[in-house]
Design a protein around this nucleic acid. Structure first.
Length: 871
RNA sequence: GCGAGAGUGGCGGAAUAGGCAGACGCGCAAGAUUUAGGAUCUUGUGGGGAACCGUGAGGGUUCGAGUCCCUCCUCUCGCACCA
């Protein structure tokens, strides 16, 4: 073993070795419990960033840890390889998306291998390969058969100048990100997945996801947005024949007696019918046009002003029988509920503001039991759930809850409406008018209509020769040999669907594909998914808290119903890791600048202006605060990069980058290396006595050392298992190294000549290397080898602490007076009784000044911890 | 506005179940080694002269509170007119 730690050589050696031996390839071994460890697969942008390093290192620690603990570990990696950047590159640089993507995958795969991640690369998948996306098509057809995929007209973001559809994130301030022209909503035929059919199950089974962070679950629940309520018809007075009544949705049937007007969404077709031929017609039309021109963000901003206009029509409140005016209001959403509401100004803040603004009546129907409200003198709507009904006919005096159920029942009995559940969740629009995605396997036949592609004709492969212009809509539409086909039903000329699928489809089931990545007659081999699913630990960014995770849950349930898996939820445990952040340097003239462009005195090297050291922000190119993993690894090695990113913060919290901290991690590995190197030679020549059989015969100091070692074994094991506290696990390893240095570095003659102590030291060093190995695997393998052990450290068994040894640990007992710490007694044998300990504490010299001349009223003894004298 | 989370040394962060606040690391200081620097090793490092005081602020429960309860402040994230 060399005296100098040389990470580059070591890491190259072990990475080659691992690759040659196929060390991480997993064979299904039913004799072991399975552990499926998965990190969110990356988009192959070409280069990895520190966020990837952090994400994948966290997963790698868990994978390696579980392997050593005797689990059969599945730890795969792949590529989320479809998507816009490849197509944009094709438009801008003329490189084919496939070529660009494959090149990026190749270089990123190399980078990942350079981190020493324990992936089974034989299971690698790339979603842009037909062998993968054909199964997107297969699943699509199954969903179509079951009515879970359907086509309907729906608005998209349309850029007139580029003649193309834009994703939401490509619309900046209502303008096209590439050509800066205005973006309009355009109605187009689009494919949807009926995720709403699973809304109730997706919501209900949130309760079963006990291994998920609460905030992710609450975001999911909110996104699904279930509300229980009632749909009620309000008869229109002197109605046009097409519109006898207006249906509203409310979650507060208990307040219907307080409905003093109605509000309809400007987009609602009811508006036209109401105002037709009235004197209000023109003004209302102008109002509607003006509102519909506003972009969605301004429109739905809660702080923007409420506006409305009277339609001239009245409806009858079914409970009071009163005629109430019908208004058009900008804040009523056409997409939600029925696009019309009853307005209860006394008990809804929005309606209250609206009523005040336009002088509409306010009628109190819920009374606050603790502080009587006066309907002529309200400052705001009373919306609390605590109260009883008033001014509500027979229902008056009922508590809110009872009023709600009784009025709802009454409405159903009198056939004024029905109890209904509404969800905020919309069906999932999967159509993309793009090239680089999965072609939707449908055919549009002039005589038969929409016809699914027969299963045996799959996959529908993307045509390779396509002009990429960024204009004239989907590129696939313009490829004649792709678009023109024959109808499978009638054999006549037909057109192929040119939409491709949203890339979220790809990532909604890839974790299932990993269980049988080479299966050719089904997307998933049911036995393999039975063996490996669900994912025991899923790790990724919080940015996917809603969409990806919701879609993946939805797909799992659909595939379950297709008989391809038996699990209902894909991810048992979810860890959302924090962002990697770094301080920013901001020059008033040059904006965010690189740290290297700032002088020591915080001046800009370009213009001399004083630089403000900005906030700690997520690493991004635009902030000029990124650290390139490749450079980091070149300089310090992968083990240091891994160790630092695990040590600097617990996984779920943001990690603040620190160059000094990286230096510290490197220093620590050097320190371990020197320690092991010091002992390797002597251990080779002297053949130390095995420690297990000599426990009682070893010297006290060695015995103490063993206890320290076993103490850390327990700590590290607990920290990894419980809550992924890698930072504290590493600090325990650091403590262990400090203990070993204090004990025997540099090595003394006394140690050298005592084979029993050397045996203890060997045990300690082996344990140290094993404990370190999930975090810094290359250096661990190298040292494991040098210490003369067989096989790999990865194939060794994770060390177990000896509980008997820890029980011998002498105790330190804290002495308190009236609850304040005033002293301590050390070295108390763990088997002492309460009397012995209290007596010893009382006699402690420092305590006499506290206890003298005072009566001890009470003594509180906490076993193994403290004695508290209450005087 | 609503929801979730967080406020601990100069810094990143520790503190099972209410029981030594500040583990570990960074930074800093001193010493050793060295021709010197770097590297390394050792020691010290919350504040205060001290008794003592210290976990965002104030109150409470308790023998004892960073931890539990109440009120408030600040920050971060998510949602944002969802009837």
């Amino acid at each position: 073993m060399k005296t100098k730690y040389d990470p580059q050589t070591i890491e190259a050696r072990w990475q080659t070795h691992w690759a040659e031996q196929g060390t991480f390839n997993v064979e299904d071994d039913p004799s072991q419990p399975k552990y499926y460890c998965l990190e969110m697969f990356p988009y192959p942008s070409g280069r990895i960033h520190m966020g990837h390093v952090r994400n994948y290192t966290i997963g790698d620690v868990l994978a390696r840890f579980h392997r050593m603990r005797g689990f059969n570990v599945l730890h795969p990696m792949g590529w989320d390889a479809f998507g816009l950047p490849a197509e944009n590159t094709a438009i801008e640089k003329g490189i084919h998306p496939a070529e660009w993507t494959q090149a990026n995958i190749a270089s990123m795969r190399d980078q990942l291998k350079r981190i020493g991640l324990s992936y089974d690369w034989t299971r690698e998948i790339a979603t842009c390969n037909p062998s993968y996306y054909r199964w997107n098509q297969w699943i699509f057809l199954k969903m179509y058969q079951r009515g879970l995929a359907y086509k309907k007209r729906s608005p998209v973001n349309w850029c007139e100048s580029c003649e193309t559809v834009l994703a939401n994130e490509q619309v900046i301030d209502n303008r096209c990100w590439r050509c800066d022209s205005e973006v309009f909503p355009k109605e187009m035929d689009q494919w949807f997945f009926k995720i709403t059919a699973y809304a109730e199950e997706l919501l209900a089974s949130c309760d079963t996801l006990t291994g998920w962070p609460q905030r992710v679950l609450s975001m999911q629940r909110h996104w699904i947005g279930k509300s229980d309520g009632v749909e009620v018809d309000f008869q229109v007075i002197d109605s046009p024949p097409e519109l006898p009544s207006i249906r509203i949705f409310t979650t507060r049937p208990d307040t219907i007696f307080g409905a003093t007007f109605m509000s309809v969404a400007p987009e609602s077709p009811a508006v036209d019918l109401l105002v037709k031929g009235r004197k209000e017609e023109q003004a209302v039309h102008e109002f509607v046009t003006r509102i519909s021109r506003q972009d969605r963000n301004t429109r739905t901003d809660a702080s923007s002003a409420k506006e409305g206009l009277f339609t001239g029509c009245y409806a009858r409140n079914p409970l009071t029988g009163d005629a109430i005016p019908i208004w058009v209001a900008n804040f009523v959403l056409y997409e939600y509920g029925t696009g019309a509401i009853m307005a209860v100004p006394a008990h809804d803040q929005r309606d209250f503001e609206f009523a005040q603004q336009y002088g509409l009546p306010i009628r109190l129907v819920i009374q606050n039991p603790t502080c009587t409200l006066d309907q002529n003198n309200l400052n705001e709507a009373y919306t609390q759930e605590d109260g009883y009904l008033v001014n509500s006919d027979n229902f008056s005096t009922l508590p809110i809850k009872d009023g709600r159920t009784q009025i709802a029942r009454w409405i159903e009995e009198k056939q004024h409406g029905t109890r209904t559940v509404h969800y905020r969740l919309r069906d999932w629009g999967v159509s993309r008018q793009r090239y680089w995605g999965t072609p939707i396997p449908m055919i549009i036949c002039p005589t038969c209509g929409l016809v699914p592609v027969p299963e045996q004709d799959l996959p529908i492969i993307l045509p390779p020769d396509v002009p990429f212009t960024g204009k004239r809509g989907s590129p696939l539409k313009n490829v004649a040999e792709f678009a023109h086909t024959t109808c499978p039903d009638c054999g006549n000329q037909a057109t192929r669907e040119s939409d491709t699928m949203d890339t979220f489809v790809d990532s909604s089931w890839y974790f299932l594909r990993y269980t049988s990545p080479h299966q050719t007659d089904l997307p998933i081999e049911p036995d393999a998914s039975q063996r490996w699913m669900a994912v025991d630990q899923y790790i990724g960014g919080i940015e996917h808290a809603v969409l990806h995770l919701l879609y993946a849950r939805f797909f799992t349930k659909v595939l379950r119903d297709l008989g391809l898996t038996t699990v209902s939820e894909p991810f048992t445990n979810l860890l959302t890791q924090g962002m990697v952040c770094k301080e920013t340097y901001h020059c008033p003239k040059h904006g965010f600048i690189l740290p290297s462009d700032a002088t020591d005195t915080h001046h800009c090297t370009h213009c001399g202006n004083t630089i403000s050291i900005g906030r700690i922000e997520k690493m991004s190119k635009s902030k000029n605060n990124v650290v390139d993993p490749e450079e980091l690894i070149k300089r310090y090695g992968a083990d240091t990069a891994r160790l630092f990113s695990l040590f600097a913060a617990p996984p779920e919290k943001d990690l603040e980058w620190s160059d000094d901290g990286v230096e510290g991690a490197a220093r620590f590995l050097n320190r371990v290396w020197r320690l092991v190197a010091e002992y390797v030679e002597i251990l080779k020549t002297l053949d130390p006595s095995p420690v297990q059989n000599t426990v009682t015969e070893i010297p006290q100091t060695s015995r103490d050392l063993r206890r320290q070692v076993h103490h850390r074994i327990r700590k590290v094991t607990q920290d990894i298992k419980r809550e992924f506290q890698f930072n504290t696990a590493i600090s325990a390893i650091m403590e262990l190294v400090n203990v070993l240095y204090a004990f025997g570095f540099p090595i003394t003659d006394a140690i050298k000549n005592d084979s029993k102590t050397l045996g203890v030291m060997k045990e300690a060093l082996d344990a140290l290397v094993m404990l370190l190995s999930p975090f810094a695997p290359h250096i661990a393998e190298e040292m494991w080898d040098a210490l003369g052990n067989d096989s790999h450290v990865l194939h060794s068994s994770w060390p177990q602490h000896d509980p008997a040894l820890l029980q011998e640990e002498p105790l330190t007992i804290i002495i308190q007076i009236n609850g304040k710490t005033r002293g301590k007694v050390e070295g108390i044998p763990p088997d002492w009784t309460e009397e012995q300990v209290v007596e010893k504490a009382r006699k402690e010299p420092k305590m006499s000044s506290w206890l003298q001349g005072k009566t001890t009223r009470k003594v509180i003894y906490v076993e193994q911890r403290l004695v508290n004298f209450v005087v």
